[in-house]
Simulated scan of single mutants.
Amino acid sequence: MTEYVFTPAQPPSLAVKGSDARFPLRRVFCVGRNYSEHAREMGHDPDREPPFFFMKPADAVVPAEGVIAYPPLTADLHHEVELVVAIGKGGVDINPEDALSHVWGYGVGIDLTRRDLQAEAKKLSRPWEWAKAFDESAPTTALQPVSAVGHPSSGKIWLKVNGQLRQVGDLADLIWNVSEVISHASKSAALKPGDLIFTGTPAGVGAVQRGDVLSAGIDGLGELRFTLGQG
Rank of each mutant, 00 (worst) to 15 (best):
R40V: 11
R40M: 14
R40I: 10
E41D: 02
E41C: 00
E41S: 04
E41Q: 03
M42W: 02
M42S: 05
G43C: 00
G43V: 05
G43I: 02
H44L: 08
H44D: 03
D45R: 13
P46K: 12
P46C: 11
D47H: 14
R48F: 05
E49N: 15
E49K: 15
E49R: 15
E49V: 14
P50D: 09
P50W: 05
P51K: 12
P51I: 09
F52M: 12
F54V: 06
M55K: 09
K56Q: 01
K56M: 01
P57Y: 06
P57H: 07
A58P: 12
D59N: 13
A60Q: 13
V61I: 03
V62R: 12
P63V: 00
E65C: 12
G66A: 08
V67W: 08
I68F: 10
A69E: 12
Y70E: 02
Y70A: 07
P71Y: 04
P72C: 10
P72H: 11
P72R: 15
L73Y: 15
L73V: 12
L73P: 10
L73K: 14
A75L: 14
L77P: 14
E80V: 07
E80A: 11
E80Q: 09
E80Y: 09
E82W: 04
L83F: 02
V85G: 04
V85Q: 02
V85W: 02
A86R: 07
A86W: 03
I87N: 03
I87D: 02
G88H: 01
G88D: 00
K89N: 13
G90Q: 03
G91S: 07
V92Y: 15
D93G: 14
I94K: 03
N95L: 15
N95Y: 11
P96Y: 03
L100N: 12
S101Q: 08
S101W: 02
H102M: 06
V103C: 13
W104A: 11
W104N: 11
W104H: 10
Y106T: 03
Y106E: 00
Y106N: 04
V108W: 05
V108A: 09
G109Y: 04
I110V: 15
D111Q: 04
D111E: 07
D111L: 04
L112S: 01
L112I: 00
L112D: 00
L112A: 05
T113E: 05
T113P: 10
R114W: 10
R115A: 01
D116G: 11
D116K: 13
A119E: 14
E120D: 03
K122Y: 04
L124A: 14
L124T: 14
L124H: 14
P127I: 00
P127Y: 00
P127S: 00
W130M: 12
W130D: 10
A131K: 12
K132N: 03
K132C: 06
A133Y: 01
F134H: 01
D135Q: 09
D135Y: 08
E136K: 14
S137C: 08
S137E: 05
S137M: 06
S137I: 05
A138L: 03
A138C: 08
T141M: 02
T141R: 05
A142Y: 04
A142W: 03
L143T: 06
L143N: 05
Q144S: 14
Q144I: 04
P145W: 00
V146L: 10
S147N: 12
A148Y: 07
